[in-house]
Design a protein around this nucleic acid. Sequence first.
DNA 1: CGAATAGTGTCTCTCAGACAATATTGC
DNA 2: GCAATATTGTCTGAGAGACACTATTCG
Lengths: 247, 247
Amino acid sequence: MRRVPPDEQAWLATYDPSQFPPFAVTVDMVLLTVRDGAFSVLLVERASHPWLGALSLPGGFVQAHEDLETAAVRRLDRETGVRRDAAHVEQLGAFGAPDRDPRMRVVSVAYLVFAPDLEAPQPGEGTRSVGWVPVDQVDPAALAADHGLILAAGVERARAKLEYTPLAAAFVGEQFTVGELRRVYEAVWGHALDPRNFHRKVTGTPGFLVPVGRPAPVGPEGGRPAALFRRGGATSLRPSMLRPPPG
Amino acid sequence: MRRVPPDEQAWLATYDPSQFPPFAVTVDMVLLTVRDGAFSVLLVERASHPWLGALSLPGGFVQAHEDLETAAVRRLDRETGVRRDAAHVEQLGAFGAPDRDPRMRVVSVAYLVFAPDLEAPQPGEGTRSVGWVPVDQVDPAALAADHGLILAAGVERARAKLEYTPLAAAFVGEQFTVGELRRVYEAVWGHALDPRNFHRKVTGTPGFLVPVGRPAPVGPEGGRPAALFRRGGATSLRPSMLRPPPG
DNA sequence: CGAATAGTGTCTCTCAGACAATATTGC
DNA sequence: GCAATATTGTCTGAGAGACACTATTCG
């Protein structure tokens, strides 16, 4: 990759890596979905020390030669069955308070994942069980390490991103109706939205939705069949969706 | 801090930290300012291997028991003379490609800092010189390690944050005029803004600006003296400032 | 038919962009 | 006065929120 100059090669040969404080690096994932109308996060129950028995975000140690996002996606697939191309993955940030792990100095790089509602994920190694929990029913203080802090950051980031990106579509399937998309916004923001204004807004924003020929099957509640859409190519929404003020 | 259960104490006593891949953790800073109308970044010339002589972002290794942000702020003060309370500091993200440093596996946590225009900063230890460079005159490929990537992320984050936060005020002094604030937006976005519409927008946004009694001294160009303002208490701008479309 | 959901149209108010006009300084 | 910057005001068009109304299905 980079050409190493000769004098630097000589210097590297005399270099002692142990002069720097050793850290371990982990990845933790805030995997979010909308499930039965509830904005929910995937939590696992730890089957080993430390925090044996506590709920935590899925994650684990980064291998020596592994890219950070690769490490996150590898665990995503193995522990939850979520494939990378079926979800949105972005880095949330680094969390590295000195006392966040009793074993040693650990910096965790957190990843935020938006996924459609999935089949019940399978527990992976080192975890006892796994399941979706509505985010407003999670007790942040009960989570392992600083995972309450990481979860709060992920939830707030998700709520903000729905405003100015088309990422709400990452929470629904390949094809979806305007009503399904609206229920994503309502679940994430915890606010009812006017179906008529919402319809006008999303169908009128260029690049957000692409019409699919066929109509959707009628839902269990009856009603007129809705048109089906796919995600458009837009990466940002201008002007953005407006989140109702809290209250 | 956390109460450690007895069985976990026993387990900790048998725990071997060396079973996890060792990493070094650094902090790098994207320190931005507006200087003579140019959106600029602080770069240092490395005085040691690796990348001897190359330009890089200021930064360094995190100490064993040091918080990440503390490590960043400590270097900010020591290498540039910028005090924490005079600037805006936020985490930009973690950069950890396996081959980004030839010495060993290093994960860098990047911090983004907005500061007013400062006196010429002093070179610190391990750096030969230090100076402000307009961001559009930086060759990203010429920077050490992946600092071109980190810089690009910081610049884009800064441009976006001016839209929906009052952080532009972090680039000017304690007291400032509407014209000074407008020139910050123009420098960061690279777009001329209408002074009259800008004035109406910022003075009409609650919590953005607080009037100070006195008027500002007249500048070198003459003209009517401008009113002075301080930052208001707002943390976000709703509705946001609108960045003109690129082009 | 009524209930439920989908979709269109209409009105009003806010606000951004364009730009005229006035205010206050230095020269 | 003239040049330069600050500040206020006015018009117009885009768009958000409220909400009446029509369309299409199930039972």
